[in-house]
């Protein structure tokens, strides 16, 4: 059965949360991981929508460290008050 955007977003959120502080994940990593997890219950389009939902809801943010990643919102080391 096809997964909903919400289900995919939740799975991605957990991946980002579990990786926090250890590994930065790119949007493509999330897509590939989710496709491995759910097989043909998901496609690229739904993964794109799920990432959009995570970002638009503010649960995750894009970050840039040489390349672009999806992470939990946090205060970065370089920030000044």
């Amino acid at each position: 059965m096809a997964k909903s955007v919400e289900e995919v977003a939740e799975a991605m959120f957990n991946m980002v949360k579990d990786a926090a502080g250890q590994k930065k994940l790119k949007p493509m990593d999330l897509t590939k991981n989710v496709m491995q997890l759910f097989g043909d219950e998901v496609d690229k389009q739904i993964c794109k929508e799920a990432i959009k939902q995570l970002i638009n809801s503010g649960r995750c943010v894009y970050t840039y460290f040489g390349g672009s990643y999806v992470e939990l919102p946090h205060r970065e080391g370089a920030a000044n008050d």
Partner: peptide, 8 residues
């Protein structure tokens, strides 16, 4: 353009 999803 607004949602970086490429390798670079």
């Amino acid at each position: 353009l607004h949602r970086p999803a490429f390798p670079y």
